[in-house]
Amino acid sequence: MASADYVNTLAKVAGALAIKTIALSLLTVRARLIKNDFSTGRAMVAKEDTEIPPVIVSALKVMTVAVGPSLDIGRLTGCQNNGTTNEPFFLAVALSLALAGSSPAWGAKALTAYLGFRVVHMGSYLFASPQPLRAVSWLGGTACTLALAVFALLKRK
């Protein structure tokens, strides 16, 4: 049976990662509103993707406090993309261990470490911190995912 500590930590980490993703989305919307840049960066952008009704734009500006300086849109979307290619796999492995009832003794620590690495990675990515901070934080999160995945593959009942 997965420990209560592991399951509770997993719930908190999943919640924190969801909040992180939502915050990045809101910061991206805010930056787009401030810079009046609704392009997606894709070569073939549908017309309806860039024509937002003024009432919606006004509401979004109020909701996201779209005044003052903003973060770089490219960094925001890059950070969001990095999260969507890493975090779901971590959560899938972590949740599958909880559902299988076989979390490692060190599992809750790995979950907490993963969240820390991902938050540091987000900050270093958004603010263009000098390397190796971004690389080390990404590698730390990847190591946590790999450790849980290997445990899941090798664990025998």
Rank of each mutant, 00 (worst) to 15 (best):
L148H: 07
F117M: 05
P54I: 06
F38N: 02
A2L: 01
P132V: 07
A31S: 01
A66M: 11
N81P: 03
V57R: 06
I22T: 07
P54Q: 06
V67I: 12
Q131P: 11
A147T: 08
A105I: 06
R32Y: 15
F117E: 08
L139D: 06
N86E: 11
V119K: 10
V65H: 15
Y6R: 01
L91G: 03
A113V: 08
E51V: 14
C79I: 00
K157M: 13
F117Y: 13
V29M: 12
L146C: 12
V45W: 09
L146Y: 15
L24Q: 01
E48K: 00
S103K: 09
L95P: 13
N36L: 05
I34T: 01
V120N: 15
P130S: 11
N36C: 07
K61S: 07
V29I: 05
A147Y: 12
L76R: 00
A94W: 08
G116R: 09
F151C: 08
D37I: 04
L133C: 13
A18P: 05
P104K: 10
L133P: 09
Q80C: 02
N86F: 08
N82W: 00
A92S: 03
L60H: 10
G140N: 08
A113P: 09
A135M: 13
A11C: 05
V67D: 08
T145F: 12
P130D: 15
N82Y: 00
D49V: 14
A113F: 14
G78I: 00
K12D: 12
L146F: 13
V29C: 08
A135L: 14
A14Y: 07
N8K: 02
V13N: 04
F89A: 02
L76P: 00
A135E: 13
L17P: 02
A43L: 15
K12N: 05
I34C: 02
D5K: 04
S25V: 10
R42A: 11
T112M: 09
A98M: 10
R32W: 14
R134H: 05
G101Y: 11
P53I: 02
L71D: 02
A98Q: 13
L76Y: 04
K35E: 04
T85C: 07
V62H: 15
S39E: 07
L154H: 15
S137T: 13
F117D: 05
T84H: 13
A149K: 08
T50H: 11
C144F: 10
A4Q: 12
